[in-house]
Structures are given as structure tokens and as C-alpha cells.
């Protein structure tokens, strides 16, 4: 039996801005729920009345412990306290929150306080006695396997399996257990200035030299694609053109590199 704690936050829909289950935390919970032989406990620091917490219950959680931390307060001490009481072998959560500051520091601070190891970018977890094998999902579909000594905090990224859909009836049956906690205001956040985000123009690497017209051309032409065109070549010629292009753009390694891309 392995004790797993899932840390769940409330997310934010990118288009509507409405509260929802946080995508990565939900994936983390999915990993936890799939784990054989695991006793999963879930924690949330925030408002116990938040409706979107029901989505986690809808995934099949029976109870969700909510540490009643007021908005703008630091949730870390309360979480550390609660987790210390449980003594989990594995703490699972998403890489980053969707709402709030979203700096991704909370799991690291918890790990530091509890003396746990941290593994980020997890796509899959497999527990053995005292260690866990974590497959990390890296950019461009690459994967890396690491072995970590438990207890550990494992941060899940979007390469992890998609979270199961929440079921209305399960959400209705699940229980939210509020725990009153004391939390202090986060002084740094209070000192920060917040304003609506306005997209700024994307910075482009401006080539130097040449006339203004040439620099402009160099920038805009790259956008439009090279537009090389071969009309009715023999298949061999076409194949060579494709091969050369792919090698040039480094999607195919040159000869002798063996098994393609790393």
C-alpha cells in the first residue's frame, strides 16, 4: 500500500475565464487514481464552497480535504501541516496552477519543507518499494525515465494521460471536508501590481546590415515560406528534393547517424 496525496487547485478556463478543475492537477489525480495499490487522499487549499471542486469528486474521489485558506493568503504552511499529518509516500500535483499567481512554486516549497525529492514533467509514475519510476514528458514527444527515492513530490505535465471526465452523479455523491486553518497574507503578492494583460508585439530577431528594405524583406520572406516548387519531377528527383529539404531543416539526420532523431 502506497500513500498518495493529490494536490488539487482550481483552474481557469482560458476562453471564458470561468473556474474549472485545473487541467494538470486533474491529470495528476488521474495518475493517482490509476495507481494500483494506492490510498489516495486529495487536498485543496482555498474555498471549500467552490463549485469546480465537484469536478474532482466527479472523477471518482470520495472525499476531498479542503484547507480553508482565504484568497491572497499563502497556502504552503497549511498544506505542509496537513501533509505532515498524512505522511504520504508520493505527492502528486500539476506543474503549475492555472489561476492565481501560477508561479509553480508551491510543490517545491512543500517538498523543501517536508524534505521530499522533486521530479517535474511527469507523464507516468510507477511505484516500487521505496522508489518510483517516473517517465518525464519532454518537448517534441521525447521521454526520459528517472528513478526517484520516495518520499517524493511528482509534478505532472500535459504529456500525462488525459484526465477522465467527471461524472455528475459521482460529483454529487463525493464529500468535501473543510478544515479550518490559519494562513497569513502573502506579502509579496499584496505588493504586486496587477493589471489586465495586453499582448505586446512579438519580438523578432532583426537581421543587421543591408538597407531597411532588405531587412524588411528578410523578415517577411521567411514568414511566407520558401515556396520552392517542383512540377512533375520524376519520382526519384522528388524523393531527393524531399530528403535534402528534411536533412537541411534537421528533421532527418545526415547519413551514418543511424536511427533518426534523438
Amino acid at each position: 500500500m502506497i500513500r498518495v496525496a493529490a494536490l488539487l487547485s482550481i483552474g481557469r478556463h482560458p476562453a471564458s475565464g470561468r473556474a474549472r478543475r485545473a487541467g494538470l492537477d486533474a491529470r495528476g489525480l488521474e495518475l493517482a487514481l490509476r495507481m494500483p495499490n494506492a490510498e489516495v487522499r486529495a487536498f485543496h487549499a482555498g474555498d471549500p464552497h467552490a463549485a469546480s471542486l465537484r469536478d474532482y469528486l466527479g472523477m471518482g474521489l470520495e472525499t476531498l480535504n479542503v484547507l480553508n485558506v482565504a484568497p491572497g493568503c499563502d497556502p504552503v504552511p497549511a498544506l505542509v501541516e496537513a501533509l505532515r499529518g498524512v505522511g504520504p509516500d508520493l505527492i502528486i500535483c500539476g506543474m503549475r496552477a492555472e489561476a492565481g499567481e501560477g508561479s509553480g512554486m508551491v510543490p517545491y516549497l512543500i517538498a523543501e519543507a517536508l524534505g521530499h525529492a522533486v521530479v517535474c514533467d511527469a507523464a507516468a509514475i510507477e511505484c516500487a518499494s521505496g522508489t518510483a519510476r517516473v517517465v518525464q514528458g519532454l518537448p517534441r514527444g521525447r521521454r526520459r525515465e528517472v528513478v526517484v527515492t520516495l518520499p517524493a513530490v511528482v509534478l505532472v505535465n500535459s504529456a500525462a494521460p488525459a484526465a477522465r471526465a467527471p461524472a455528475f452523479a459521482r460529483a454529487r455523491r463525493g464529500r468535501i471536508v473543510p478544515h479550518p486553518v490559519e494562513a497569513r497574507e502573502d506579502a509579496f503578492l499584496a505588493a504586486c501590481e496587477m493589471r489586465p494583460w495586453r499582448a505586446r508585439p512579438k519580438r523578432m530577431a532583426v537581421p543587421s546590415g543591408g538597407s531597411a528594405q532588405e531587412r524588411m524583406k528578410a523578415l517577411t520572406e521567411a514568414k511566407a515560406g520558401e515556396g520552392r516548387l517542383l512540377v512533375n519531377p520524376v519520382p526519384e528527383e522528388a524523393a531527393r528534393a524531399v530528403r535534402d529539404y528534411l536533412v537541411e531543416k534537421r528533421f532527418l539526420r545526415g547519413a551514418g547517424d543511424g536511427d533518426g532523431r534523438g
Binding site: G225, L230, A239
Partner: peptide, 19 residues
């Protein structure tokens, strides 16, 4: 396309595999 080839894909495929 950045590299566009007007040809029968079905003919180019084996040629590329051979290459």
C-alpha cells in the same frame, strides 16, 4: 507548402523509401 512537389504521392513514396 515551403517545399511543394506536384507529383503523384503514390509514386514518390516508394522512391523516397528506396532513397
Amino acid at each position: 507548402a515551403d517545399l511543394a512537389i506536384v507529383a503523384d504521392a503514390q509514386a514518390v513514396m516508394p522512391a523516397l523509401i528506396r532513397l
